[in-house]
Design a protein around this nucleic acid. Sequence first.
DNA 1: TCAACAGTTTAGAATTGTTTTAATGTGAAC
DNA 2: GTTCACATTAAAACAATTCTAAACTGTTGA
Lengths: 142, 142
Amino acid sequence: MSNISIYKEKLRESGLRPTRQRLKICEVLFTPEKTFHFTINDLTKIIENKLSEKISLATVYNTIHAFKKKGYLKEISINSDKSYFDTNVTEHHHFFDEDTNELIDCSNEEIDSVNIKKNITGKKIKSVEVLIKVASDNQNQN
Amino acid sequence: MSNISIYKEKLRESGLRPTRQRLKICEVLFTPEKTFHFTINDLTKIIENKLSEKISLATVYNTIHAFKKKGYLKEISINSDKSYFDTNVTEHHHFFDEDTNELIDCSNEEIDSVNIKKNITGKKIKSVEVLIKVASDNQNQN
DNA sequence: TCAACAGTTTAGAATTGTTTTAATGTGAAC
DNA sequence: GTTCACATTAAAACAATTCTAAACTGTTGA
Ligand SMILES: [Mn+2]
Ligand SMILES: [Mn+2]
Ligand SMILES: [Zn+2]
Ligand SMILES: [Zn+2]
C-alpha cells in the first residue's frame, strides 16, 4: 500500500524530479487522511525521529517552497517567529490557540462568508481569511 | 504646540518613566492625526532621518514592546519576515497589498461582523480579525 | 547503454529580525 | 545631593531562513 508511484507521477507532472527526498516528504505530508498544519521544525522532526531519515534542512526548505509554489501547500503567518504551513490548500479560516500555539481549521461552513463593503481601486482580492485567536478562559493575558 | 507634557503624564500613569527616548517615540507614533502601520525598521528610519535622533535599536524594541504591553500598540503578523505594528489599537481588519507590502485599515463598518458557528471547548475568543490580501489585477502571481 | 547536463542535495556560511547581556546612565524619591 | 530601581546602550547571542558552491543524481538522447 504505497503511494510512491502516485507521488512520482504528480511530481513529474509538476516539472519536479521525483527524488528520494521529495518522495519521502510527500509521504509525510500527503499520505495522512486528514490535512494538518506544521512548521519546518515539526517536519524535520517527523523525518528524523519517526522515519529515521536524514534530509538536509536546506532541502526541506527547498522542497516546501517548491510545493508551495505549485499550490500543494499554503503558508500561514500567525506570529513573526516562524512560518506555519498547511496541507489544506482550500481557502479556509483558522482558530489559533494561544495556549498551545496550535492552529485549528475553521471551514467556510462554520463562518458566514465575509461581506466586504470596501474595495481598493485597481486591486484584486486574492484571499479573505479570518483568524480567531483563542485562549484558556482563565488566562493571565498580559 | 508640543504634546510632550501630555506624553509625560501618560507614561507616568502607565508606570513608565518619561525618558527622552520614550517621549521622542511617543511623538513619532501618537502625534499624527491618523493612525498608521509600521515596522521596527520604518520607525528607526523615521527617528534617524526625519528627526536626526539616535536611539539604540534595543531601546526601540524595548519601548515598542512596553507600549504594546500597555495596549498603546498592536502587533500584526502578515508574513513571517518581520512584525508590523499598528497605532490603531481598536479591533479592526486589514487589507494587505502584496505589490507594495502595505497594510490598509478596514473598519468594522466596512465588513459585516463575522459570525462564527464553531467554538473551541474551554477556550475564549480573544480576537477575530479578517485579512484580505490584494494585488494588482494584472499580476504575475507565482 | 551510458555520457552529458540540468536539476537537486548538501553542509556550512551568511543574512535578517529579534532578544539578551552586562555595563553605564538617569529619573524619582527622600 | 544621594540612592536605587529603572532605562539605555553596544555588542553579542539567537533563531529562522536563505545563500553558496561543491558533490550528486534523474533524465535524455546518441
Ligand atoms: Mn512574536
Ligand atoms: Mn515569507
Ligand atoms: Zn488550515
Ligand atoms: Zn490597522
